[in-house]
Design a protein around this nucleic acid. Sequence first.
DNA 1: TTGCTTGCAAATGATTTGCACTGCT
DNA 2: AGCAGTGCAAATCATTTGCAAGCAA
Lengths: 152, 152
Amino acid sequence: MNLDNSGLHQLVATKLDEAGQMYTQKRQKLVDALSQAGPCTLPELLEFSDGIAQSSAYRNLTVLEEMGVVRRLVHHGEYGRWELSEELTGHHHHHLVCHSCDVVIDVELPTHIEHLMDEAFEKAAIGSKFTVDRHNIDIVGTCANCQETAQA
Amino acid sequence: MNLDNSGLHQLVATKLDEAGQMYTQKRQKLVDALSQAGPCTLPELLEFSDGIAQSSAYRNLTVLEEMGVVRRLVHHGEYGRWELSEELTGHHHHHLVCHSCDVVIDVELPTHIEHLMDEAFEKAAIGSKFTVDRHNIDIVGTCANCQETAQA
DNA sequence: TTGCTTGCAAATGATTTGCACTGCT
DNA sequence: AGCAGTGCAAATCATTTGCAAGCAA
């Protein structure tokens, strides 16, 4: 179950080091889990990177978020979700969100669509004198798993 | 501070009646507040439609949500937000979200952009065998108020 | 009277925090 | 030694729920 995460870890290590933060084994485990499983809830993270106390996981995720390594997502499920930041991965993406099981899957959109949207969002924001920084898009529906379950 | 909400109330009344639900004065107050103030947190709703107990507000909002009258939004602030459902208002819209004060403002996008996005989302979902129902877009940035405050 | 609505107070549960301890440096 | 990271247990706080009263059909 090992991909090549050395480059990723290198990046994170540098980032944390520059900010005077340690890249401990627990933090590495969290980053590993996120890089392999995509957006995760806390229980999922505890399972994947086993041996971490709940409070330590929350604390480490908070640190990693402040360092720009991870981002916290919030949807309708009971738990928040965490993912590697776009700043870190370099991939701008959006989310498929299943309204049945709350799973979240990453998707990328064609660049020209992103451009069109950015323009449209800028224009839409003018009327409210709102300065746009970024956009989050949730494509809400039913995941493959829940479709099967429903017809069974 | 009164707009013409009679049409709105008529709609809601019918909807609730058909489902065997009462359209009580408290529920009307909540609908009034939402129709005038846009997406509101619970404390905001308690202030606007004063005289409602916290627990009653939550319970009524839950009923109204099940009836398709309101929708619950979830962002990063401490409170959830409630808004009138698109099904009720007939206006598909998205949200400007201020990452400084967490305020949420409605915006509509041009129809042709919505079409382009829908197509793109459908295509993006195919790879994950995901059935798309709808999309939520948050345009994140800084609201007019917070821009002023920042430069002051 | 019967059942839904309401308010108060208590419970719930994800997340946060206090504190004592372990382990780098 | 000194300071950051960790686990456990306790606290926090938005939201939910139990229960006794109020109100409409």
